[in-house]
């Protein structure tokens, strides 16, 4: 253990002052996120079959399946459903991405999700393709 003295930090202080500051000037400069960063959820409307697994597994209740039309298989007519994403409740855990066997879902590296209008975070991309 080294000897007690006052002002032990001085040397390191001047060293730090000579170095570049580590502050990220965020709104003016970009933040680089990692490759695996789990950000905003994105859906590929073409790949999505509307199976509804994501709705079941989502822990935050982001996904609701809404009926978009009818399709007949043989004699029966069944309702076709597609997911709507309320991204403002999304916790970016990635469970839906993991369980989507069609690879329709992905987490992008976008993280700026602050909006004035909550409605603008409702993603209805998957609906449009069917209509």
């Amino acid at each position: 253990m080294s000897k007690k003295r006052i002002g032990k930090a001085l040397g390191e202080m001047f060293k730090t002052a000579m170095e570049e500051p580590v502050t990220v000037k965020y709104p003016f400069g970009a933040v680089i996120v990692a490759e695996r960063f789990r950000g905003k959820l994105d859906v590929d409307p073409i790949r999505c079959t509307g199976c509804g697994v994501c709705e079941i597994v989502c822990p935050a209740g982001v996904i609701t399946m809404v009926p978009v039309g009818k399709r007949s298989i043989g004699q029966r007519e069944i309702e076709v459903k597609k997911p709507v994403f309320d991204l403002y409740t999304c916790i970016s855990c990635g469970q839906c991405v993991e369980d989507c066997r069609f690879g329709a879902l992905a987490l992008t590296n976008k993280f700026e999700l602050a909006v004035f209008d909550k409605g603008s975070l409702i993603m209805k991309k998957a609906l449009k393709v069917v209509q």
């Binding site: 500051p21 580590v22 502050t23």
Partner: peptide, 12 residues
Amino acid sequence: TAARMQGRVGPM
């Protein structure tokens, strides 16, 4: 000075 010595930028 405090900011630069602590590795920050301070008022800017």
